[in-house]
């Protein structure tokens, strides 16, 4: 991975400590990390920075994680972008909505950065394979 362009991950959460811990974990493992604190900023960054994967919280001010994914899916450029939902309220998302949003993985808070990294790597492998 060191000779290749590092994979870019966009981390979205209004909790600064969560953003930081995820960013450190991914940077330490060779990722290029960009961060923001709400869905609206993430939408802009997804378009400008073309990340390989987005890790986002669900409940956020201005634009929620669900609204962010809906917007991503409606844009052909980002429609297939892998998204991992990082949430304390995963149980509230209906199966139907999950299928519609095409979420790659769900990680519930409190979460393990180690497992989140593994999950992101698996999703990225699958997306490359596809």
């Amino acid at each position: 991975m060191s000779n290749e362009q590092p994979l870019k991950v966009l981390v979205v959460d209004d909790e600064i400590h969560i953003v930081q811990v995820v960013a450190i974990k991914f940077r330490n493992n060779g990722f290029d990390v960009i961060t923001c604190e709400n869905g609206a900023q993430a939408l802009q960054l997804a378009s400008d920075e073309k990340p390989n994967i987005i890790i986002t919280d669900v409940q956020m001010p201005v634009m929620t994680g669900i609204e962010l994914v809906q917007n991503l899916r409606s844009n052909p450029d980002t429609a297939e972008l892998p998204v991992i939902l990082l949430t304390a309220r995963g149980f509230e998302i209906e199966d139907r909505q999950k299928a519609e949003l095409n979420i790659s993985a769900y990680v519930s808070k409190p979460f393990s950065p180690r497992e989140l990294l593994q999950s992101a790597e698996e999703v990225l492998k699958e997306s490359v394979a596809v």
Binding site: V21, P110, F111
Partner: peptide, 25 residues
């Protein structure tokens, strides 16, 4: 739901940073 979210947020930070310490990050 709110309290669960509010409780889980600091707990998530504690859990994540503790694991980072354990993993030598």
């Amino acid at each position: 739901s709110h309290v669960s979210h509010e409780l889980k947020t600091p707990l998530a930070s504690i859990n994540a940073y503790a694991e980072m310490l354990v993993d030598g990050e």
